[in-house]
Simulated assay, not measured.
Amino acid sequence: MTSTIVIIRHGRVAITSDGLFSREDFLRYVEDYDAAPLCSDSRPPEELIEQLRLARTLLASELPRARESSRILFLDQDIRYDATFNEEPHHLVPRLPFRMPLVAWFAWSRVGEAMSPSLQRAVAARGSIAAKLLIVEAHHGPTALIGHGWFNRVIARSLIESGWRCSLRHGGSEPWSFRVFSSRE
């Protein structure tokens, strides 16, 4: 028998991200992003809907964009929200005296995390815990998670290290992208 886990990134968030940002602007943007709703026209692709038709267990991050995405995808089905799947915070945002595009701030933040062995271990340990929760559920039937771009990659790495394989990848890390993982029991 094959176990299946679908890991999904939430829908497109209704927030402006153009222009140059100071460090303080970036930190405020992250807070606003965490609280923002989805764009009113943010709809999942049909390929994702097809993947979810057989899901027995539905999990989601507790953050608003994941909650709203799960309601769009699963409607009235029973969804378990769990902070274990929340996006990894931006722990290390450098104090730079100039303005940059958001993508540069996000990169600097994640590079800083990668340069900290203790933080790297903590993030990997959290990803391993999240992956183990998904694996336990997947042994009872197809499982789906609505999560976030960065932390979904951490979870995916832990699944692969646990012997799971990515059998389908739809999209990169854009909104509504997803990966399907499978394992032979």
Score class of each variant (00 low, 15 high):
Thr84His: 04
Thr84Trp: 02
Thr84Gly: 00
Thr84Met: 11
Thr84Arg: 11
Thr84Leu: 15
Phe85Leu: 03
Phe85Asp: 00
Phe85Gln: 04
Phe85Thr: 02
Asn86Leu: 09
Asn86Phe: 03
Glu87Ala: 01
Glu87Phe: 00
Glu87Val: 00
Glu88Cys: 04
Glu88Ser: 03
Glu88Asp: 05
Pro89Ala: 01
Pro89Met: 01
Pro89Glu: 11
Pro89Ser: 06
Pro89Phe: 03
Pro89Thr: 08
His90Lys: 00
His91Phe: 15
His91Gly: 02
His91Ala: 12
His91Gln: 06
Leu92Ala: 15
Leu92Asn: 06
Leu92Tyr: 14
Leu92Thr: 12
Val93Phe: 03
Pro94Gln: 06
Pro94Val: 07
Arg95Lys: 12
Arg95Thr: 11
Arg95Asn: 14
Arg95Cys: 11
Arg95Ser: 13
Leu96Ala: 08
Leu96Thr: 02
Leu96Met: 13
Leu96Arg: 13
Leu96Glu: 06
Leu96His: 02
Pro97Arg: 01
Pro97Asp: 02
Pro97Cys: 13
Pro97Gln: 05
Phe98Tyr: 12
Phe98Ala: 13
Phe98Glu: 07
Phe98Trp: 11
Phe98Gly: 08
Arg99Ser: 03
Arg99Leu: 11
Arg99Thr: 10
Arg99Ala: 03
Met100Trp: 11
Met100Asp: 01
Met100Leu: 15
Met100Cys: 15
Pro101Gly: 03
Pro101Leu: 10
Pro101Thr: 08
Pro101Asp: 07
Pro101Ala: 07
Leu102Met: 14
Leu102Gly: 11
Leu102Cys: 12
Leu102Trp: 05
Leu102Ile: 06
Leu102Val: 10
Val103Phe: 08
Val103Glu: 09
Val103Trp: 09
Val103Thr: 08
Val103Met: 06
Ala104His: 08
Trp105Arg: 07
Trp105Phe: 09
Trp105Gly: 09
Trp105Pro: 02
Phe106Ser: 05
Phe106Lys: 13
Phe106Trp: 05
Phe106His: 14
Phe106Ile: 13
Phe106Pro: 04
Ala107Ile: 11
Ala107Pro: 06
Ala107Val: 12
Ala107Arg: 07
Trp108Ser: 14
Trp108Thr: 12
Trp108Phe: 15
Ser109Asp: 06
Ser109Pro: 14
Ser109Val: 11
Ser109Arg: 03
Ser109Leu: 02
Arg110Gly: 14
Arg110Ala: 08
Arg110Tyr: 04
Arg110Asn: 10
Val111Leu: 10
Gly112Lys: 00
Gly112Arg: 06
Glu113Ser: 14
Glu113Leu: 15
Glu113Ala: 10
Glu113Phe: 09
Glu113Asn: 14
Met115Ile: 15
Met115Asp: 00
Met115Val: 04
Ser116Trp: 04
Ser116Cys: 15
Ser116Val: 10
Pro117Cys: 13
Pro117Leu: 04
Pro117Phe: 05
Ser118Lys: 10
